[in-house]
Design a protein around this nucleic acid. Structure first.
Lengths: 191, 191
DNA sequence: GATTAATATATCGAAATGATATATGAGGGC
DNA sequence: GCCCTCATATATCATTTCGATATATTAATC
């Protein structure tokens, strides 16, 4: 599922300019997909060449001119084919977790600051999703938004309950098997 | 936090060949970071040029020769500097969620198959993490593994409780505000 | 009057992926 | 014995994507 295919998908929802596609990535696909202008504009160019979208230049008052893209019927068919392909597995990159893996190399107060910022960012993201969920939404959008919210809430709960593992000064101690993670009390004990 | 820096970090744990670094990405950094040989080998070459690691060719019996990399003291300092940098935000790409966003374009039985595979994969991943957590681990590793487990379990619970949102045949209906997601019963209702 | 933010398109170097090539040895199936 | 697959080991390369940068207009803020 490359950016080109996702642009096509967003154009099934509404006609858009490249700039509006970028905003749609942020409002519809975030936080489980992102794209930069550097990939969106070439993707739209290629889709136009392939005849999967059409382009119309549109002059605007008080704003720069824009190029509006509309999906063609060939484009709709191509997107349905792409949707039926088996999904590739999720990919995640988290600097936060990479840093915490090396927690024993960092002072506890630095870790505490990192964790506080993480919690604040996730709480803010969760609040925003909740306000979006208050509206009427298509089923797919509601499902993926709720999914994102569930993961943010789980991450917040986990970090709050287990931050002591990396913040304790006794970081030289190796942690043995604890209470069994999220399945039980949710708290991993360090003996 | 690029692959080069992460290679340096893994070399603070033990000396390794490029091949072993790849395995360390899978065993230590997965599932929140990954790297391919195509990025690891060039990264190790660059680290060697910069004097942050040293390279020793090591002949082996019954196995191909390998090049063993060791972090230098300059390398340790450079890694500590990199660790202190503010983390960039998490990036995720999920084909599964992208497809589900367009659930109304797919037949319910296809969606059911996708979701069943997703649940099986996540359950398998969760089981594997649980078995790893049974051993004695450094605090950082225990924290990030537990984090991964908590997210897998939250995703499984969410999908099991909310799959009806996308599987129901009445996909033309727009879902209004429900019970409030994970905060309450965990189930989003479609009126 | 200056700076920041939003709208709008585009390019480019650098980073990373995923596939492929090459080579050796071990183990299993037939 | 022969073939295939898997594990070990290094390396390259086309393609994809990111992130920064450039350019231009209008509105708002300071």
């Amino acid at each position: 599922m490359d950016i080109r295919t996702l642009c096509l998908g967003l154009l099934t929802l509404r006609e858009s300019s490249g700039y509006e596609i970028k905003k749609a990535f942020e409002s519809e696909l975030a936080p489980f997909y992102e794209a930069s202008f550097g990939s969106i504009y070439p993707a739209l160019g290629r889709l136009t060449e392939e005849g999967l979208v059409s382009r119309t230049e549109q002059a605007q008052e008080k704003r720069p001119d824009k190029k509006v893209y509309r999906i063609t019927s060939a484009g709709r068919l191509a997107f349905l084919d792409a949707l039926a392909e088996p999904p590739s597995r999720d990919r995640t990159r988290s600097d936060f977790l990479a840093i915490l893996l090396f927690a024993d190399l960092l002072p506890a107060r630095h870790l505490a600051g990192l964790i506080d910022e993480r919690l604040a960012a996730h709480q803010s993201a969760a609040r925003q999703i909740k306000s979006e969920l208050a509206a009427t939404l298509p089923a797919g959008r509601r499902f993926v938004l709720g999914h994102a919210l569930a993961l943010y809430e789980a991450a917040i709960a986990y970090v709050e309950e287990n931050r002591h593992l990396v913040e304790s000064e006794a970081l030289l101690a190796k942690a043995g098997p604890g209470s069994g993670s999220g399945s039980g009390s949710g708290r991993l004990t360090a003996p």
